[in-house]
Amino acid sequence: MLEAVNVSVIYEGGFKALNGASVQLAAGTVTGLIGPNGAGKSTLFGVLAGAVRPVAGEVRLGGEIVTQHGPAWRARRGLARTFQLSRELASLTVLENVLVAQPHMRGENVLSLLWSRRAVRDEEDAAIDKARALLQRVDLWKLADAPAGTLSGGQKKLLEICRALMLDPRIVLMDEPSAGVNPTRIGEIVEFVQALRAEGTTFGLVEHNMGMVRLLCDHVYVLAEGQVLTEGRFDDVIANTEVASAYLGAQS
């Protein structure tokens, strides 16, 4: 379980992106963060992932206070994330992008390369099998040897999801996974997430596609101006008139 308690973030220049926001991602559920642009969703995401350090409040991962730990530390404890704007490793191939996420690779240690070549190869082969299974699920295996920088925007999003899942994460934070993705592919992402949730993976989702939020999210937080406006089941939350004016009103 991952939670942020009363976190505040002030960016350089004094902009208060978050003002005492609290969210909880219960184990084995999909939690959505919605709200208008500038509400602080991505900042809150950064706080949960460890990329943004809050000036106040704390972050707990599995009950442990992790506010002071960075993204690498949290990733090693099972917290994976994708980015709002795809951050593929452009010059690496699609396959390499996924492989690089594999944890505990002895082949990343220079001395092991000398002394335990066989173990390194076996690990690499196992990692390739795992990567292939992930890439085949999103139909990217046929592009395995293409440089990731040559993929389309939607394919990059899918690649990032595969890369995050390569960590065997307990918790996955996805920042607008549907942005730029072909509508038929969005269905695949939804199925993918539902299958993993059934296996016990926890998800946090920032998303503007309300259809996807409705399909996926067990619990939704509505953010506005750096604070949690309301929370609950999607249908209940969306019926709330305050939300309609803060979020949906802003769209219509």
């Binding site: 949290r74 980015f83 490793l89 452009a90 010059s91 690496l92 690089v100 990343e108 690990e123």
Partner: peptide, 22 residues
């Protein structure tokens, strides 16, 4: 080797490599 891959990954985007726990 996997080490070389990791080296090239840090060149392309060190932030991603951190987020992957390395």
């Amino acid at each position: 080797s996997p080490f070389g891959r990791l080296v090239r990954a840090t060149r392309d985007d060190p932030g991603v490599v951190e987020a992957l726990g390395k």
